[in-house]
Computed example of a mutant assay.
Amino acid sequence: MRMLKMAAFGAAMALSGCIDVDMTATILGADHAQVNGFMQVDRQTLDMMGGGAAFCNEEEGGTLTVTDTEARCDMHVDGTFAEVFEGDPGEPVPTATDLGDGTVRVVFPIAAMTADTAEMRADPQMAAMMAPMLEGHVFTMRIAGAEIVSSNGVIAEDGKSASFTFPLAEALNPDYVFPETFETVVRY
């Protein structure tokens, strides 16, 4: 499961209230990235999804660990930008563009990935049902490299990564506005 597929799947599952997602894309060169991260779901949800293969694809970099109470898919993907940020046809995809000066601009389409939240917000019964399931769950995407040049996310104190994180309960908050994109310029 490449990063976009993982992110899109994770966002959909996260907004259903049953998953935590934390992913880091490290830019290593003009067309080279490495993605590490995880998705974690409770065991009951994994069983409802049809088991581990539906949740964590080993052939696409996933390693599944299952306990009595939860399942965790640890991801590791290394390759070109096209390989790492690959998406399904018609789906919004992140872009990574070499700027020619030792930096890369990475753009994630956050608004497109979270478009389903409007439906939950518009239905008070659905919002009331979803609120307890979303509480305490978090979705995080991070871009890392030798140095973050700029970002509309939160830049770490060491200046080597920028992140976009939101508590999933905010998906039901009518005042919360998802950014159109999470954009970072990173030096490799």
Rank of each mutant, 00 (worst) to 15 (best):
A131G: 06
A144C: 11
V149A: 11
P94W: 07
A8D: 04
M6H: 08
P132Q: 10
V84P: 09
E70R: 09
T103S: 15
M6E: 11
Q44Y: 10
G79D: 05
T181W: 10
G29P: 02
M133P: 00
S16A: 15
E135K: 14
D22I: 06
A14I: 04
T26W: 01
D22T: 09
A53Q: 10
P109R: 01
A118T: 12
V186A: 07
C56N: 07
A8Y: 06
D47I: 10
N57W: 02
F55G: 09
E91K: 09
K160H: 07
F178L: 12
G90R: 05
N173C: 11
P124L: 09
C73P: 11
M49P: 00
P109I: 00
G52C: 06
R2L: 02
A112R: 06
G50S: 10
N57M: 05
Q125R: 13
M48A: 14
P167I: 00
G17Q: 09
V104N: 09
D74I: 00
Y176W: 15
L134H: 05
A171K: 05
L99N: 15
E58R: 14
V35C: 11
V186S: 02
A82G: 08
I143S: 00
A54W: 01
F81P: 04
I27L: 05
V106C: 03
E183I: 00
V154Y: 00
M48H: 12
M13F: 13
A128Y: 02
E58Y: 04
E83R: 12
T184Q: 08
F81V: 01
M39Y: 01
D42Q: 03
A131P: 00
D123Y: 09
P167F: 07
D42E: 10
F108P: 05
F9H: 10
N36D: 15
V104L: 03
K5F: 05
R121H: 07
G52I: 04
D68C: 00
L46I: 12
G10E: 06
D98C: 01
E157C: 02
R187S: 13
I155K: 12
